[in-house]
C-alpha cells in the first residue's frame, strides 16, 4: 500500500498497483522515495478522493479487454466525468500533476465536449479570459469565417 496526503492533511491508502498509473508516483516508488507518506501539496482531499476512485476502477485496465469489462469501464468513465466544471478542472490539474495519462485524456475530452457549441462570450467566462481584442479586430475575425459564428445551436450559457 502507498500512503498519499492531500493538502488539507488527510491521508489515503492506495494499492500500489492502482497508484502506479500515476507516472509521477511510479517514478518515486522506483527511486525509493515513497517509503512513507507522499505529500501532494497541490491536491485537496475532495479531488484526491475522485482521483483514487478512478485509479481503483482502472486498476485492471489491461485485463478489462480480455474479460469483456470494457463496457463497464466505459460506463464508469461516463459517470465519472459527470461533475461540475470547477471540479472537473480540479481533477484535470491533479491528473496533470500526477501524470496520469488516461485520466487526463478522459477529463480533457469532457472539457472539450462541454465547450462544443459554446459562444465566445461563454468561453471567456468559463475559462476566465479577458478579451483584449478591439471591436474591429473581433469583427475582422468574424468576417473571415462568418459560418463559424452562425447556427441555431450556439450556446451562450456558462456551465
Amino acid at each position: 500500500m502507498v500512503k498519499l496526503k492531500s493538502n488539507d492533511d488527510k491521508e489515503f491508502e492506495v494499492e500500489e498497483a492502482a497508484v502506479i498509473q500515476s507516472e509521477m508516483i511510479k517514478n518515486m516508488i522506483e527511486d525509493g522515495c515513497a517509503t512513507s507518506v507522499i505529500p501532494l501539496p497541490n491536491i485537496d482531499s475532495k479531488t484526491l478522493i475522485k482521483v483514487i476512485e478512478y485509479l481503483n476502477k482502472h486498476i485492471n485496465m489491461g485485463k478489462a479487454a480480455e474479460t469483456g469489462e470494457e463496457d463497464d469501464l466505459k460506463e464508469f468513465d461516463e459517470q465519472f466525468v459527470n461533475m461540475g466544471w470547477e471540479e472537473l478542472f480540479d481533477v484535470i490539474m491533479a491528473a496533470n500533476y500526477l501524470n496520469i495519462h488516461e485520466l487526463m485524456e478522459l477529463c480533457c475530452q469532457s472539457a472539450a465536449d462541454r465547450l462544443k457549441n459554446k459562444s465566445v462570450r461563454a468561453v471567456r467566462e468559463m475559462l476566465k479570459i479577458t478579451n483584449d481584442l478591439t471591436e474591429e479586430e473581433e469583427q475582422e475575425i468574424i468576417n473571415d469565417a462568418p459560418w463559424a459564428f452562425e447556427g441555431p445551436e450556439i450556446d451562450d450559457t456558462v456551465n
Binding site: 465547450l115 457549441n117 459554446k118 479570459i129 478579451n131 483584449d132 473581433e138 463559424a148 459564428f149
Partner: peptide, 13 residues
Amino acid sequence: KLLSRFMCVSKPW
C-alpha cells in the same frame, strides 16, 4: 468550426 470561432476569444487564443 469551434476553433475558428474561438479565435475571437482573445489575442493569445
